[in-house]
Amino acid sequence: MQNRTSIIFGADFAVMNGIIAKFAKRFIAGMTNPLFYAKIILFGEYGMIEDSQGLVVPYSFYKGTLKFSENHSEFEAKSNGHLRKYADFLQELKLPEDFTLDVQRFKDDIDAGLFFDSNIPQGYGVGSSGALVAAIFEKYSLTRHDPENISKENLKNLKAVFGEMESYFHGKSSGMDPLICYMNLPILIENRENLDRVSIPDGEEGKGAIFLIDSGMTGETGPMIQIFFEKMKTEGFRKTLKEEFIRYNNACIDAFLKKDMNPFFRNLKKLSHWAYEHFRPMIPESIFNIWKKGLDSNAYYLKLCGSGGGGYILGFTKDYEKAEKMLEGFQKEVIYRF
């Protein structure tokens, strides 16, 4: 018969073994869970709804990943609670067979302390929900989808699936944000039906730059999209969107991908001026004056970054040092040099 000490030691050893196994599982999961980066719509905001081209790129400054936590901080507990509600939504979602999710495993992991560890700001137009959707799909999809080898047709199907998954956050989603976050590659949207991976010119340490300006307030996608659809009921707005905005937008994309900067900035000014005239409700109040200042001085041009209403605004300039001085007082982040 074993003495009492050996029984206690055996029990303690078993408990310790369980704790070690649990922490090992969490550690391995943390090591293997990939990072999902934010995204930036360089061109195509709103226009893509009406079949314009779009150019969307990943932005590695902001990122998120799924992790486990034994002792929830307030942030981790809140994230865990959001995931729990989202899992209920996903359980009711009917996805195509090749894109089915293991929602029960997702729920089990939530019970075990899963949360989304992210520094991507919400309401800033850089894809906070897109990164989350991409992370969940990558971890819980029953079929493996290799971003490097995915076909053009499956790319389109994946975008549609991501649209269904992200609709929980915005009411309606194109699926573009999660697709960019998942692929971690620039994507050119040619029209509603066609999209493909694309190479953007290598950045270099020149005087020019594409940069973000913090408007100092968050924006909500839903209300901004509602304003857009209300404007679309007006024939004059529909006409100018199709005949001017889309033309300037597509010309900017074409020139940027060719790194042909003279026609790029020529069309960019037209695009910025059009947005200043027709997207007023989407431009944060704090940005009105500097938007006009850029147009008047030709020192830089601004455009929406996503749906607008707040968050980040995109800036483009041939001389960043000059633009930076003119935009003193605003928080800025350079995302591309040329």
Rank of each mutant, 00 (worst) to 15 (best):
M31Q: 10
D109R: 12
G329T: 01
S215H: 00
I136D: 03
P281S: 02
G81R: 15
N184A: 02
N250I: 09
L90H: 04
A323M: 04
M224L: 12
S73Y: 08
S199N: 15
H72M: 11
D146C: 02
K63H: 13
K152V: 14
G127H: 01
Y140W: 04
I283P: 09
G315N: 09
E153I: 11
I290R: 05
I287T: 06
C252F: 03
C181P: 05
P34K: 08
R238H: 12
N71K: 14
A29P: 08
T143W: 07
F237C: 03
E220H: 11
S174R: 08
E97W: 03
P284C: 12
G315H: 11
R266L: 14
T240G: 04
I253V: 11
Y301L: 00
L155W: 05
K303C: 11
E45P: 08
P284W: 01
K152W: 05
K233I: 00
K139T: 10
H145E: 01
G30Q: 07
L66T: 07
H170I: 11
F265G: 03
G236R: 15
R337I: 04
S215P: 08
H273Q: 13
N71T: 14
N154Q: 14
T234R: 14
G315F: 04
A275C: 13
L241S: 01
Q331G: 12
T5S: 09
I227R: 05
G310N: 08
M224C: 12
A135Y: 12
G208T: 02
S272M: 12
E321I: 12
V133W: 00
G308T: 09
L35E: 12
K303I: 03
C252V: 09
Y124F: 11
F23G: 04
A209D: 00
S118H: 05
F162L: 04
P96M: 12
A24M: 14
G127P: 04
L142N: 07
L257F: 13
A299K: 11
H145M: 00
G310K: 12
Q226S: 06
C252K: 10
A275M: 11
G175Y: 00
I283K: 06
I187K: 01
I290E: 14
E45Q: 02
Y124T: 10
V56L: 02
D260I: 09
F162P: 02
W291L: 13
C305F: 08
F61V: 15
S173E: 00
I20L: 01
A21P: 07
A135K: 08
G44Y: 01
I210A: 09
E243P: 07
I335N: 00
P178F: 00
L93T: 07
E230M: 08
